[in-house]
Amino acid sequence: MSIVNKNPRISDKIFDICNYTFLSLVLVTFIYPLIFIISASISNPDMVFRGEVWLLPKDITWEGYQLILDYKDIWTGYRNSLLYVFVGVPFSMFLTFTAAYPLSRKDFKARNLIMYIYTFTMFFGGGLIPTYLLMRNLGLINNFACMVILPSAVGVYNIIVTRTYFQTNIPTELRDAAEIDGCNEITFFVRVVLPLSPPIIAVMGLFYAVGKWNIFFEALIYLTNRQLFPLQLILREIVTSARMNPELLEGMDPSVIEKLTRITNSIKYGVIIIASVPVLMAYPFLQRYFVKGIMVGAIKG
């Protein structure tokens, strides 16, 4: 609000103080875990284990990252995840944008019917098992292509947001002018519409890339071959299994358990950072775009 109240009353002052204090606390609860994990990843694991590190790193060591470098599965997973992003995102973008443009055209008679077909899938579907059986029949289990052609490869919500962007940002006059010049729909879409849409391209690219990078559930059910595992599956073994599933450790040699626990403890902070780096690096650059993007969708969703 841009209006400055000339006589801020006491109640407003108190409100402001409480508000700023509360939001600052919120800020701390969001930043603190990040700082702690960074510090813990480069501190002496034994000190972290004893709870002596709570803000700044102590007795700095790169042992954790050294162990991560030697951990082959992590790098296979990293490579796989990157591949899934680089092949999967263009595929998803293609489906989303080609679907969104016709829907943005008010003179397109089939648009309502097609819209119904799309939105229905948001509320009802076959469910886990029938989808799994379909994927199996298509031979997509344990297949590289499976991580690209997933049922979730195209998000209907994303189509709607993109359509709304086209509706509000591509003037109909442009289309009329192009039609007079004898430009066909596809040329118009590729040559005029797409070059006018960098914000929505950036937003959708980010959404899909993050989605692919973070994919877990579908990888869990459709992949059993370790060579194809994305990073998240490997990560899960490191950050959760040993600590939280006492059953997994039953019947193992105590010295092996101790060694495993020690390795897990020294690398779990580092792998969390390594797994989040690509996403967090792109985030500040794209932030202004995605807020715009989601607002466009929110106005007329």
Binding site: L95, A99, Y101, R105, A110, I114, I117, N184, E185, I186
Partner: peptide
């Protein structure tokens, strides 16, 4: 709108 139908086709088939 032949071209618009054509553009809608991939996603329709996919879904």
């Amino acid at each position: 709108h032949k071209m618009l139908y054509l553009l809608s086709l991939p996603t329709l088939i996919f879904l």
